[in-house]
Write a protein that binds this DNA or RNA. Structure first.
Lengths: 221, 221
DNA sequence: GTCTATAGGGGGATAGAC
DNA sequence: GTCTATCCCCCTATAGAC
């Protein structure tokens, strides 16, 4: 409140929406609250984004496009061919670091994005889920390719399951840090991206490298 | 619609609420829709549960109390003292199996609970998060104790982080199965609790048993 | 581009009859 | 215990002045 300078209504709206979507959920954050926090008028959202759905889409893609581009850039910078033994760790780092860095508090307002991002895949609104999935699709495809080469003993099925678990651990870390802080009585610092990254990479690398399972046939369901 | 027999309004309301909370989210599921699906009157919710919040609480505790009791029962049935090497797997199985079994489609309507449960810890409503955390607190404490004895080389901090990651993989599995089904083009069956359980246990056991990290001092933040 | 005003639809809760 | 009717709230979207 009482901003010194008005920079850009459109950007202010995105900042306010990101913050309120994160705090209250997409559905529960009203355009009234968003426009008020942005110092803009109620009608501004419809002018700039067409509808609330348009605003939601813009909020996500503003962050996800650069995030997934950076992931791919880091993946391509990995040194995976020269007999190094830490290929899995390198790839995990390339996937996780951009998100965990983004979650860290910054002067600009990326702060709230972690909670929103962690919830995005389980949002009740199907349009939101679909939109977010599509933003990730290309990056996920590339990372799965890289992991498949690094872990040739895994069946395609098992690799997919394990990547899914890794995504879950990551999502939980960025969206439910409060649980860890409370459970550890302050011993763990969930909002510290470096701490989270080190523990996550070693944990997930070990999980990905676990011996392949021989599944007992079970055609249940 | 057109139910053959009216059994119990209270239970019908819980079933309808669980189903609609799962599908649309707690906030977006209106009491009007819930009472209509339950074949009850709008005022029935206030009569039986006092308010929408009361209904939410009842929906969660109806499932979580027996779920966590079963977890503790299974944990106490584990054989951890006789030099067996699969202690971690046994403990993980005791923690995961009750939830994954509950998520499976059943005749009665437990079907929808997985999605709701997976989202519960990141619900925007703080009262819901607090309520759900408390339902899990006792079970989590016991499982952490058991794991600490099985993995004495881990610092308390690292064990907490790893348990947190495990919870995330589990939550993602029960709430975002659609992602895996789509990503695998039908190769993986996320709704098959047995398949999920086998892959989860081996993945998480390897992650928990990974060598302890030596954290470089980093007092960032 | 930005505002005010309003249309038009739902929402949770409750009073009071049965 | 269950119903109807209603109070009063907030929501998104849009029309039309500036």
């Amino acid at each position: 409140m009482a901003e010194t300078e008005h920079i850009d209504t459109r950007e202010s709206l995105l900042d306010a929406a990101e913050s309120l979507f994160s705090e209250h959920g997409i559905q529960a954050a009203s355009l009234r609250a968003i426009t008020q926090q942005a110092g803009a008028n109620l009608a501004a959202v419809n002018y700039h984004f067409g509808s609330k759905d348009g605003l939601v889409r813009a909020v996500f893609s503003r962050r996800l496009k650069p995030l997934n581009e950076e992931r791919i850039r880091l993946l391509e910078a990995c040194d995976l061919e020269n007999g190094r033994e830490d290929g899995v760790e390198q790839v995990l780092n390339a996937f996780l670091a951009p998100l965990l860095r983004a979650v860290r508090a910054t002067p600009e307002g990326t702060r709230e994005f972690g909670r929103l991002m962690g919830r995005a895949f389980s949002e009740p609104n199907e349009d939101v889920r679909k939109m977010v999935s599509e933003e990730f699709a290309e990056a996920i495809r590339r990372f799965l390719d890289a992991l498949a080469r690094l872990l040739p003993s895994l069946s395609e099925q098992e690799l997919l399951w394990r990547f899914h678990f890794a995504a879950g651990a990551m999502a939980h870390t960025v969206s439910c840090g409060y649980l860890l802080e409370k459970l550890s009585a302050g011993l763990c610092h969930a909002s510290n991206g470096d701490e989270a990254l080190e523990y996550l990479v070693s944990f997930l690398a070990a999980g990905l490298r676990a011996p392949a399972q021989q599944r007992r046939s079970s055609q249940g369901e």
